[in-house]
Design a protein around this nucleic acid. Structure first.
Lengths: 185, 185
DNA sequence: GTCTATAATTTGATAGAC
DNA sequence: GTCTATCAAATTATAGAC
């Protein structure tokens, strides 16, 4: 994977996070790079190929971030706070929504390979949260910790979506306070 | 507003809920009605006009549904359960996501009038939930009840988004269990 | 690897007949 | 109100030169 291909993925990710998969175009990526759209096709034959490359790298980067948290041997509470921080960072970057949120909304329009990538992204998040819960509640059945993992993830995603839509970081902060309330005391 | 205009809005709402504002077209609506796209322009001069009509009617219908709940003089718990039922109904309708979710994801691309409609939709929801919370916790400050309202709404939206994206009604059911945990006992 | 040139399609929108 | 016809623009994608 060359530098040019990397830069194409960078810009495509940004475009998808801002406009969505349907609305972003090869030409706008090319224009930002000072090349022609035909050159993009040299690196990624079709739009589904480029979209899949974006989604796949996005999931892998996310998995690496979760692994980083794990490597710090934090308490479950602190590890969850680190995840919240990852989401919090997305509040600042202006026109950009979240790649996950855009592809989630468009999922019925996506090539099946990208749909599968999104399913894997969800599984990654929920599995990670489930392990976190299980570590804090060792006596729980896996089914119990999975339910709480779903609750935590739904709240986190809803908080980010609402904050981005309203342009209100406060909304995010107020919503994520509820995460702590979902842990058993 | 004639019958034809109503039917156009019906089909446009369905298309927006399925494909989003950017990806739906006048021609597909016209084809479903057995007319030509030029005829759509007679009823709605531009795409922003039609999009605004969809968003506005959607918000008004939603407001009416909330008013219906209010008219039943339910307990706050039962009223919240009724709202959850409204969201639950969206799990069944196949390819359709939620109008709110699609327009929320695309908000940066929307004509400003539709953006404002979305802001009004969020305000409607949060104000309604805030009143609900205030009714259950009469001694709370408005700021406190507003925070809980944001938490409830974020969880509800995240639950629907995750369930729709994964095609998993169970995800929704597991996530919304947490709504009860957020109420003070 | 990037270019020019172009094909094929889709889109929002308008003019004018009926 | 709906039609035909059309425009101007944008899009994905390909062929072939350099």
């Amino acid at each position: 994977m060359g530098d040019t291909a990397q830069q194409i993925i960078d810009l495509a990710e940004d475009a998808i996070a801002t406009k969505g998969y349907s609305a972003f175009s090869f030409r706008e990526i090319a224009a930002l790079m000072g090349i022609k759209s035909a050159s993009i096709h040299y690196h990624f034959p079709t739009k589904p190929h480029l979209g899949l490359a974006v989604a796949s790298r996005y999931r892998q980067g996310y998995a690496a971030a979760l692994a980083d948290i794990d490597a710090q041997d934090l308490t479950p509470e602190a590890a969850l706070a680190s995840l919240v921080n990852i989401y919090r960072q997305q509040l600042g970057n202006g026109e950009r929504m979240s790649v996950c949120m855009m592809l989630a909304a468009e999922i019925k329009l996506l090539p099946v390979e990208i749909q599968q990538e999104m399913q894997a992204f969800y599984a990654l998040n929920i599995d990670w949260l489930q392990h976190l819960v299980q570590r804090r509640q060792p006596t729980w059945l896996p089914a119990e910790s999975r339910v709480l993992a779903c609750q935590l993830f739904a709240l986190l995603q809803g908080a980010l979506m609402g904050a981005k839509t309203q342009g209100s970081p406060e909304y995010f902060e107020q919503a994520v306070v509820a995460l702590a309330k979902l842990w058993p005391q």
